[in-house]
Design a protein around this nucleic acid. Structure first.
Lengths: 345, 345
DNA sequence: CGAATTTATGTAAGCGCTTACATTTCTCAC
DNA sequence: GTGAGAAATGTAAGCGCTTACATAAATTCG
């Protein structure tokens, strides 16, 4: 009972300490913690008591090394400042926690190089699996993950031509449905304010969705007045200003997301252009902002929380069973609100 | 050259493989990776080449076990769905990444039990340090972290009476300054819609701030008509409805945060009560929402990004030097906008 | 030029846990 | 009571890396 002080000073108890204190082997202690059913009730009680008394908690590094997994999943999103990602990540994290998994997060700031870097970082930090946004990235990244045996789940996109596990919605079809609603009201001169399409398959799909609808209504898809701009209210406002300064103003401006649409709305108000009488504006995502502005934004509701929640479920499944689930497609819903009306002839 | 297939199949290269391939010891390889200056240029080049050729990347568990740290910091926030936290966490993560640290996130959903649970989880997942919101929590949590040698940084609160490292702002003083502005305009019947104060020192401080200002203006702080409600636009709206139904309506409603204020604003519009002529409304935080609504919200600007960024800086410093920095107080700023005016007599 | 330093590299002992396999202890049918 | 098989527990070999310490090589200086 008189060991060197340094044996105990700021030295957390180890499995061996617990084993000694409970009078069992380290293997038994380990089993008590990881698969209690394998241990007899009486022994288990004794061990767990020792655990409590000593204030033992397993060393993470040792456990990860021996078990060859960390119980950690990484997510890389463009930015948390975008409410749609924040919302989904929140649900994702909650669902992971319920399954005893911890979330490692990183952001790409919409930069592919940045994202590639983060993939490497998270894998180096022991992520057992990864959740990424969209399919569109350097194939080398998928090869890298494959080689390291790290499963990936893509979210925010549903593309039946891509075989890898994914959970998302059909951006193209959803946007097409919204555009169809706009065109059906009789709009002919259409503007679109989109997020930057480079390296962003969701943005591209939404643009194509609008063009699909135009074709279906006998309009030339080339006539779409398209402006791409980074994600922010200010940029949406600026793009709208440019669009309204053009000689033949569009009577409907379809925006790639709600944030850009709110910017467009601000510009319209500022320029004294009445919405929706003089110009209709639509968004995409259905974030809180959409219902707070006046008039409320016509948009497409995306089940962000559901997506986050299911992403966690799928990932845990993939990790547990080593299975590769097929892509999942969630439904979106049109939200017809105040900013859309027929053009005044 | 004819080992068992299983020797290499889905077996990632190890330090030893690199060492062999470069003709050096494992120690040298390790040094090349962790403190390259200690290794001669020529050797280093040879080793790094081997690293690239083999596609080596260190095993996380082994590294964590041997080095006794993970290069990971945990953050526990109420919820990412709150834009103020999303914004700060984004900055926090970016700053951590620049310092080679990865972020582990968890959320408490404003529940103390939940938070305590998450603290244990993140520590068990190898967080080298923790960032928490507010000082107010079971002392046992601080003891636990102390015992395990995990440094903590509190943010969102500045309270000189608390010695532990913190970065935040003086919620009480900031709210008092805003309330002072309101009272100076001549308002006498004051309402307040606050977030739930239990277990939330920020909310309590803001309430006290309003009372401070009332005292300073010779009003009875007891006359404050206070309603507490969970964080959401809908709850803000509901609380406002209750407040406006009272016999002697307040002429100014001070809200604990912008989200509640936006809800209040919606109710006012819906009830046909003109803002600010019939009732003034103020918020706190200055999130995007505040400038999007009409009229724009009078509020207090909180440097969320700055706070996240500095929190990362401090934490990295604490981890590196083993130092315990003193609490840091950031400045907030009054944003006087359309929702505040003198009461109509 | 050789001793004293300094610098570069190697050796090997852990870090604390999991788990395959070995051993012991029960159960229970006959 | 016995032996076969199941259940509980123990033994000990790693997992892949870092780092204190030992050694060897290069440099400095009287």
């Amino acid at each position: 009972m008189n060991r060197k002080l340094s044996d105990t000073y700021r030295n957390l108890p180890t499995l061996a300490d617990v084993a000694r204190s409970a009078g069992v082997s380290t293997a038994t202690v380990s089993r008590c913690l990881n698969s209690p059913a394998q241990v007899q009730q009486a022994t288990r009680d004794r061990v767990l008591e020792a655990v409590t008394t000593l204030g033992y908690s397993p060393n993470f590094g040792a456990r990860a090394l021996a078990a060859r997994r960390t119980g950690t999943i990484g997510a890389i999103i463009p930015t948390m400042e975008n409410a749609i990602f924040a919302r989904a990540i929140q649900a994702f994290q909650e669902a992971l926690h319920e399954n005893g998994v911890t979330l490692l997060v990183a952001s790409s700031s919409y930069s592919p190089e940045n994202e590639a870097d983060q993939v490497r970082t998270l894998v180096a930090r022991g992520a057992d699996a990864l959740m990424l946004i969209g399919h569109d990235r350097d194939p080398g990244i998928y090869e890298f993950l494959e080689r390291r045996g790290v499963p990936v789940l893509v979210s925010w996109a549903y593309d039946p031509t891509q075989a890898r596990p994914a959970i998302g919605f059909d951006n193209r079809r959803a946007m097409s449905a919204l555009a169809d609603e706009v065109l059906r009201l009789g709009h002919v001169r259409i503007g679109m304010i989109s997020a930057l399409a480079a390296g962003n398959d969701r943005a591209r799909d939404r643009i194509e969705g609008v063009r699909d609808a135009m074709r279906a209504h006998g309009l030339d898809p080339q006539s779409l007045h398209l402006i791409e701009t980074p994600y922010s209210i200010g940029n949406g406002a600026e793009a709208m200003a440019g669009m309204m300064a053009a000689p033949a103003r569009p009577t409907a401006v379809i925006c790639g997301n709600d944030v850009l649409a709110v910017g467009a709305l601000q510009t319209a108000r500022q320029m004294g252009i009445h919405v929706p009488r003089e110009v209709s504006i639509t968004g995409f995502d259905d974030i809180e902002l959409a219902t707070v502005v006046a008039p409320a934004l016509t948009t497409v509701h995306v089940p962000h929380r559901e997506m986050g929640w299911q992403a966690a479920r799928l990932l845990v499944e993939m990790l547990g069973g080593g299975v590769t689930p097929p892509p999942v497609c969630l439904e979106t819903e049109l939200c017809l609100r105040g900013t859309l009306a027929a053009p005044s002839k």
